Each structure stands twice: as C-alpha cells, then as structure tokens.
Simulated scan of single mutants.
Amino acid sequence: MKKCSHLIVSLLLVVLLFSCSEQQDFGQYDDLEITPTYETSIFYVKTQESLINRISGLNFFTQDFNFDAFEEDLFAERVIEGVLTYELVNTTSKEIEITLEFLDENDTVLDTEFFQMDAAPTALLIREVAYGITGKSLDIITNTSKIRLSARNLGDNSSRSSLPDPAIILSSSAKFMVRLK
C-alpha cells in the first residue's frame, strides 16, 4: 500500500509538472524596446537690474558653461529625440538681447539661439527647441561641449523698474528620449 501511494503521488507530480508549464519564448528579449525619457535642468542665471546699471556698455553678462553631459557614449549613441526649453523673464526697465551659442570642443559654433525682450512689464517668454526627427539635428546636442551665454542691455544705465526685485532670469531644461536597448 505504501508503494502504491508513493507511485500515485509521483505520477501526480509528473502530470502537474508537465500540464502546468508552457513553452517558454526567450526570443521576446529581441523584440523589447526600452526608451526612457530623461529630464534635467541645464542652467539658471539671474542678473539684478542694479548690477546692469553699474556696467557701462551694451554687454552686461558673458559666460561660458562647460557642457559635457551629452558627450557620453551612453547618450550620444542612443538619443532618439528631445527638447530644450528656455524660460526668460525681464522685470527690469531695460530692453535686452540674449544670445546662446552651442560650441564644440574646438569652440566652433554649432547652433545659436537668440532672444530679445522688451522692458517690464513683459510676459514670460517660453521657447521650446526640438532636436531629432522633427527638429534640429541631434549632432548639435551630441557635439556640444560648451554653451556661451551673452546678454546685452539695449536700454540705459540709470532707469529703475518699479517692480520689486527687478531682474532678468533665464533658465533652461532638457528632456530627451534615449534608446537603452
């Protein structure tokens, strides 16, 4: 009787093992696409009107920002598309111009973004620049190693805005889709 019950249990285990399993398809990995979207802030620059008033001449701000983030092979070889978003606020009494130059490692200009904004009161200026299939070439982004920001005062050096804490604020962010597999 003991042998018979062991035999029945063994047969049941064998039947359960084969009846509950499916053929595994390990080729599904080849069909898998992983394309996450990454977002990051690029820069934030704020210049007070009092500082602008102290600087004679048109140019009141020029700075180069080291920007090697897009040179990494993980990104450069796998980026599909993306958008750079710029936000500009001018609460000063000055009309301004801002130029952004995207430079490669040899300081060759790859692309330029130009902004002009009237004196306050002005609305928030938002600009989205697409890269990839529906926009500018991805080579601009993947080859950029430096961003040069230049700002010019097209107004005077004595007026003061009546708004509290008058300043020019430029910020930017990036959102890119990358193929991981």
Rank of each mutant, 00 (worst) to 15 (best):
V45L: 10
R54H: 11
E87W: 00
F67W: 13
L58E: 15
T92R: 02
I55E: 09
S56Q: 15
L88P: 04
E39T: 15
F75D: 01
R54F: 13
N59A: 15
E72L: 07
V45T: 12
G57N: 12
T40N: 13
A76S: 14
E71M: 10
Q48V: 03
N66C: 04
E72H: 05
L32D: 11
F61I: 02
N59F: 13
E72Y: 05
R54N: 15
Y38I: 14
F67S: 11
L100R: 00
Y44R: 06
F61D: 06
G82L: 03
K94E: 06
N66I: 12
N53E: 10
I98E: 01
L51G: 03
S56G: 15
Y86N: 05
E49C: 14
I80E: 13
V83H: 00
K46Y: 02
T40V: 08
N90P: 00
V89S: 07
I42T: 12
T85Y: 04
R78I: 01
T62N: 10
S50R: 14
L51K: 09
A69R: 10
F70S: 02
I34K: 07
F65K: 04
F65G: 00
F65C: 00
I34V: 15
Q48P: 01
T35R: 11
N66G: 09
F75I: 05
P36H: 12
E39I: 12
G57R: 08
T85V: 10
I96E: 10
F60H: 04
P36G: 13
F43S: 03
Y38M: 11
L84E: 04
N90E: 01
E87P: 00
E81A: 03
V45S: 05
Q48D: 12
E33G: 03
I55Q: 13
Y38H: 12
G82E: 06
I96M: 11
I55G: 06
D64G: 06
F60T: 02
N90G: 02
G57S: 09
T91P: 08
E72T: 07
Q48C: 00
P36T: 13
E33P: 01
D30G: 12
T85L: 06
D68V: 09
Q48F: 06
T85A: 08
V45P: 01
R78E: 12
L88I: 04
G82A: 03
D31I: 11
E77C: 08
E87C: 01
N90M: 00
T47S: 07
Y38V: 13
I55F: 06
E39W: 11
E39C: 12
F65H: 06
L100W: 01
V79E: 07
K94Q: 10
D68F: 11
Y44W: 09
F75P: 00
T92Y: 01
T91S: 15
G82K: 02
I42S: 08
T40C: 09
F67P: 01
S41Y: 13
